[in-house]
Design a protein around this nucleic acid. Structure first.
Lengths: 334, 334
DNA sequence: TTGAAAGCGGTACCAT
DNA sequence: ATGGTACCGCTTTCAA
């Protein structure tokens, strides 16, 4: 069933059917109703591919992230997809994993589907070594990056100021009397690096010495991080607070601490469901996805409507305090 | 840049260009190379819409779930998307929320995009009252349901046998000496009902009486479930074990129990990251997404290749025992 | 208000 | 091995 069939059965031309389809005002009510009734009777559904070919768009937006099974990305994808749909777009989801080759390949695959724009979620897409794939993509469609930073034409970044967030956390811990703050991180993405910079800045602001033994890389896994922290404790590495680049990592640390009978302040990142789930509930930095995602989608629609928008946008994070912050330190009270 | 331009610059016809594009063997190596070099030089990308129009497919698969920010759905979507991509399909993601109207609307939206098939994740799509939307969809494309059951033509279900899983859990708890097993559930989806049936069956098998006070509905939220369980305890409702339809709910119960100084066996469902995250780690039923998702994608490709496949498939669950199962019951030891 | 016809950019059949 | 051409189904311009 196509537009020709409808035209024939309605006794009008395909042009008129097309007009009815697109709600053109220049169709007489009688004609419109006649055509619509045939469409209903035949359960006609217009062919989206033909439409796409003619209009050069199917209103698809490509969403790339490394892994939707990660709670942070899942939440972002969820928000973005919902917002896009309300604006009449469909989301083509693509999870790349961490290999740069795959990221390039999948980004290209998405572009071949002629998406109207691409949204990259998570700074894992900023490769310090090679951003050619992003640059290349941005030559064809607008690229919006949520929580990542790339300075390229036709590329738009909405970020949470995670550097300041971590720096502020360090200050807060310092005010609480902490002097040796362990910082645990996993990947050196843009976001990961910003957080580390924030950690260093925070130490500097407080006049605390930087100690490389307190800046430790770990795996994004609860048991592995727990083991790592246990090993640190065993080795005698002294620290009186923990900050982490991820809730998952913070939870790992928490497990090791409680196993060792220690109750130190711990701060996570992302304010995910994990922070509510663990015991004691984890103080965590909310990186404002509820703000970033709508902002990203707005920017996207603005650009597609040829309106100019700022290329960079940054919002401050918000610390959500829970029990792990208010702990009286066991070590001190000993 | 289109096929005509490439043809002209290569000094061949569009038919030949198309053949090169599709790797047809009936092109001389010399011609092929000539055309390919022009394509490379011009950075030619074929128009996917035109292809879609001609072939009547863009190799899109629609994925519907109620909410990707839920860890269970997120994992399923992640698995399915990856598997689809490896088979050359793109995933159109659509999160519907719980309203039946939205489910209908969004399913229709997806079908209008002419997806090759639809994968429904989670039994929330089986509406006891009205499955007309699914029936309707299945008239147009194959519908694959992961962890849901609908008996309709052109509809394929891959399920985990959650009923038996819960029934077995009850038996196990009974063997451990538990006699009053609290069952907490949230939604009465297909899956939700199966689990409740399993609970009842389990009680029957063990010769335990069914007590409506022990079959309690709650919200899918940690604090709300914790509050509910605390209220039950306060009210004096006696129970010596907890089973839940969801890890999240089990965690809520766990919080209430430990707040009350009780250490009862608790069993969750989905074996999500939450089960590792909470304290003590939660024993949980793994509903085998790693098996179900590949099975679903295989069925899908089989059908699209006109091979016949069974309409129903069921796999047994697997209990992942963690500390919450081995707890010596405080109440008894009192 | 309506219709005719020219795209949009491919695929595939039929000749040669 | 290659080319000519009809066709996929819709949008849009131009005329009437």
């Amino acid at each position: 069933m196509n537009i020709y069939d409808i035209a024939e059965q309605s006794g009008v031309s395909i042009a008129t059917v097309s007009r009815v389809l697109n709600g053109s005002p220049s169709v007489s009510p009688a004609t419109r109703e006649k055509v619509l009734s045939v469409m209903r009777r035949e359960e006609y559904v217009p062919n989206a591919f033909a439409r796409g070919l003619g209009l050069n768009t199917m209103h698809f937006i490509g969403i790339l992230c490394t892994d939707v099974s990660d709670t942070f990305y899942a939440k972002a994808v969820s928000l973005v997809e919902g917002l896009l749909r309300r604006k009449g777009f469909d989301a083509l989801l693509c999870c790349t994993g961490n290999s740069l080759d795959d990221k390039k390949k999948y980004l290209e695959l998405l572009l071949e589907k002629r998406v109207d724009a691409v949204i990259l979620i998570g700074s894992a897409f900023k490769e310090s070594v090679d951003n050619s794939h992003i640059e290349n993509a941005a030559r064809r469609v607008p690229v919006i990056i949520i929580n990542g930073m790339v300075e390229l034409p036709n590329t738009y970044c909405v970020c949470c100021d995670e550097k300041s967030a971590v720096s502020d956390n360090v200050s807060l811990l310092h005010q609480k009397g902490c002097r040796r703050i362990l910082y645990l991180y996993d990947a050196l993405t843009y976001s990961g690096c910003q957080k580390i910079e924030g950690y260093r800045e925070g130490l500097r602001r407080c006049g605390l010495p930087g100690d490389d033994a307190l800046l430790v890389q770990t795996e994004k896994s609860i048991p592995e991080t727990a083991e790592l922290v246990s090993a640190l404790l065993k080795k005698g590495t002294a620290f009186d607070a923990v900050a982490a680049s991820e809730d998952l990592i913070a939870v790992g640390a928490l497990k090791a601490l409680s196993k060792a009978g220690l109750a130190l302040p711990v701060i996570g990142f992302n304010n995910s469901i994990l922070a509510q789930c663990c015991t004691p509930p984890l103080t965590s930095v909310d990186n404002m996805l509820e703000t970033l995602c709508p902002a990203a989608v707005n920017i996207l629609t603005q650009i597609l409507n040829h309106k100019s928008v700022p290329q960079k946008m940054s919002v401050s994070a918000r610390l959500v305090e829970r029990e792990t912050f208010q702990i009286t330190k066991t070590e001190e009270s000993k």
